[in-house]
């Protein structure tokens, strides 16, 4: 049994401590917005925040995040009010299939907290998520729009 704090709520999950956080979120807690893409921290579809920092949850064992604050895509909008990143994503119609976008939005949200006005070079360095639909042009536009607020 591990005790996790997810989107502000304490959750007990009955899993082997080596279970990746991704699968505890998806299968024990029922938060399926965080996606499985590769399982080896390559694609970033599983990105969540642990104590505010972006983490690839597919390789993060549950045992390593006990007692830490975990935020998932479901924890961003409060009472249905989109964050500025989500709003920019909506305005710029970023998603195509959308499968990678939870991770993309989590990675960008963390970037903007760190660098409120990122340059293109900052974006290139921080955002390494794979998107097979190829939404990068809209992702970049939306990041700049979100940064302008």
């Amino acid at each position: 049994m591990a005790r996790l704090t997810v989107n502000g709520s304490a959750r007990n999950v009955d899993v082997d401590p080596a279970t990746p956080l991704l699968w505890a979120l998806r299968e024990q807690i029922g938060l399926t917005g965080t996606k499985y893409g590769c399982g080896v921290a390559q694609c970033g579809a599983c990105t969540v925040h642990v104590d505010g920092a972006p983490v690839r949850s597919c390789v993060m064992p549950v045992s390593a995040v006990e007692g830490k604050r975990i935020t998932t895509i479901e924890g961003l909008a409060v009472n249905g009010v989109l964050t500025r990143v989500q709003k920019a994503w909506l305005d710029h119609e970023v998603p195509q299939c959308g499968y990678c976008q939870s991770g993309m939005i989590m990675a960008v949200t963390a970037l903007l907290k760190d660098k409120p006005r990122p340059t293109d070079a900052d974006i290139d360095a921080a955002i390494t998520n794979i998107c097979r639909c190829g939404t990068f042009q809209q992702v970049r536009e939306a990041i700049h729009a979100a940064a302008k607020g």
Partner: peptide, 21 residues
């Protein structure tokens, strides 16, 4: 015109096959 299917892809609400319960 704006796509009809964007919002749920921004909040984790969109259900893909892998998410089905």
């Amino acid at each position: 015109v704006k796509r009809l299917d964007t919002l749920d892809k921004l909040t984790g609400k969109q259900v893909y096959g892998a998410d089905l319960k």
